[in-house]
Design a protein around this nucleic acid. Structure first.
Lengths: 324, 324
DNA sequence: CAACTTTTGGCAACCGGTTGCCATCACCTT
DNA sequence: AAGGTGATGGCAACCGGTTGCCAAAAGTTG
């Protein structure tokens, strides 16, 4: 049997004071006499009183809750972001709630509208919504974006420009004269950022670059990407992200191609799993905890600008000298 | 600049009707004349009206929101559970919010109390709370447990008894005469369930079983486990879960032990990564999507009992014949 | 001891919705 | 034309807190 929750009025009656006094005893203790307060607290304790967060939030409009929306909570890329956001939110006395939007712009928009007044603000990581919808959301709620840029909306982005230059130089130093980019979702900001950086860096070093795809940024998407890359005669592939790169590794193994002696593979993000796949993946690591932390910080401080965080190269076994 | 959100009263004034009529136009459409309703809807649309979920929930006590609490959202074990719960909740018109409790009983209890009235119920997956706290929570809210049993609280558990028998028979058929269990968290229900099943099945087949640990169920915990297992001269180890097993594989590789020719390794759960580690892991797969789906179902239907779901063996490259 | 200040508690309005009840009115019946 | 029925909209109370304002009580000062 579920019990009826005692309210502030129950406590007031039982303690022989007015409801407003009970309210103040909790939310503004110095406003009520010490003895009265102790009595009220004791009664509340005995009755098992818990303040109703909804009722409390209604007049004030503050919920001390922040919503973090992700296209896919099971994508290891977001783990660091979750951790960082969580820590920072807790440190500031906020509760972080996570929502998975299942890669759907509609689900994301719907949840933002539905949760609107139930949170103090949103962090939208790799949002799939249209710019218009994001602007609309930012008009109603405090919003901070991660890895997406919309004019007028504060954001935190991981910049791969400098890191990508390191990737290209690493491949060049191993003797590669060309590379193939396995592209990810066309709508992805990171995908555009990575491809642009790759073209520019490769161009500067006189390397040939081609792009194939788009592929689904998942392990299974890697099979198609691997097959397509073999067809192109590539000696090095740079995948949109680690998931795609890991899928590519598996497919190469299935088809008898050896990595890195037959072909080198580079990923992006350095996710969980990148260091225990076979061979371990060379990848461009991004400061994702920082990213989550900074986003919450921006949200709570009402920051306005755009924060850019750099990434760095991690060399492992999937890249090697060109042979033949 | 953030806009003031229009309320039902703004719409009412603008449409020239009473607030109650606007309310009904949305929540009980057949209660108001078609033309009035259309007019109200048009005005609401023009003003950008969005119902305030808090205000709506306050009188009714219903939020159409369910909280799923997890000790660690980044643990791949929970991915399937999240997916299953999400699907089922959405299908029933509920919003699922996720909360990470960071393996802490205190954080979990605190969040359950804080969110109490803000959700219609909780699914607690692998709860770290004490039985007393869980009972208290179940007294105030609808609660369903996953992989934990508390008398009187409905639950969904994955039963490894039968699956573990398959693991032991598989190892026996490969010529193993003994096995070592690498145990996980002492407080874990699954850990107890797995060890008990292992003892019983092995005993029936006349195999020797020993247990070492406990080890942290993480990749890094696997290093210690591997070293300890080598010291025992084991030919086969069964790890508490896949994370631990993967960590063990890595450590064996570092120390030059070959899997499976020198030693066989078995995990539990079949998480993301279990099929692309090296060698791919033999493991006992559990129906985790089912688990999440069933938990939500139980919660919404007000189910009372305990649902038991079976697991099944997936044989991959980490188990092989005993040599020497 | 009067006049003044500070402390303390209560009243009542409010946050933004929902809903029971009632009044009105159009439409039917016979 | 009187009486009955169903559809429709409004009033007001309520959900569980918060808070501005006021008055009574207590403390301070000369």
């Amino acid at each position: 049997m579920r019990q009826r929750m005692p309210t502030i009025h129950d406590v007031a009656r039982e303690a022989g004071v007015a409801a407003s006094t009970v309210s103040r005893a909790f939310s503004n203790p110095r406003r009520v006499n010490v003895h009265t307060r102790q009595h009220i607290v004791a009664v509340a304790e005995r009755l098992g009183y818990r303040p109703n967060p909804l009722a409390r939030a209604l007049p004030s409009g503050r919920t001390t809750t922040i919503g973090l929306l992700l296209p896919d909570v099971t994508n290891p890329f977001f783990f660091g972001i979750i951790r960082g956001a969580e820590r920072q939110a807790n440190a500031a006395g906020y509760t972080l709630i996570l929502m998975d939007t299942e890669e759907s712009p509609e689900v994301e928009t719907h949840n933002v509208e539905r949760l609107g007044r139930a949170v103090d603000g949103f962090v939208l990581a790799s949002s799939r919504q249209s710019e218009a919808d994001i602007r609309a959301a930012a008009g109603r709620n405090a919003v901070v974006l991660i890895n997406k840029q919309v004019a007028g909306v504060p954001s935190v982005v991981i910049d791969n420009t400098e890191g990508t230059r390191q990737v290209v130089e690493h491949l060049a130093s191993l003797g590669h004269r060309s590379l193939t980019y396995l592209s990810g979702p066309p709508a992805s900001w990171s995908n555009a950022n990575r491809w642009a950086a790759l073209r520019e860096s490769a161009g500067r070093l006189g390397m040939r670059v081609t792009r194939i795809g788009p592929f689904s940024p998942t392990v299974s998407g890697g099979a198609a990407a691997a097959d397509a890359a073999i067809g192109r005669g590539a000696t090095a592939v740079v995948a949109f992200n680690d998931m795609l790169a890991i899928g590519t590794l598996r497919r190469f193994a299935e088809r008898g191609w050896r990595v890195p002696s037959d072909i080198s593979v580079v990923g992006y993000d350095d996710i969980f799993g990148a260091d225990f796949c076979s061979p371990p993946l060379t990848t461009l690591a991004s400061p994702r905890e920082d990213c989550g932390r900074t986003a919450i910080d921006l949200l709570l401080r009402g920051g306005r600008g755009e924060v850019v965080l750099p990434s760095h190269l991690v060399v492992r076994g999937s890249t090697g000298f060109v042979t033949g």
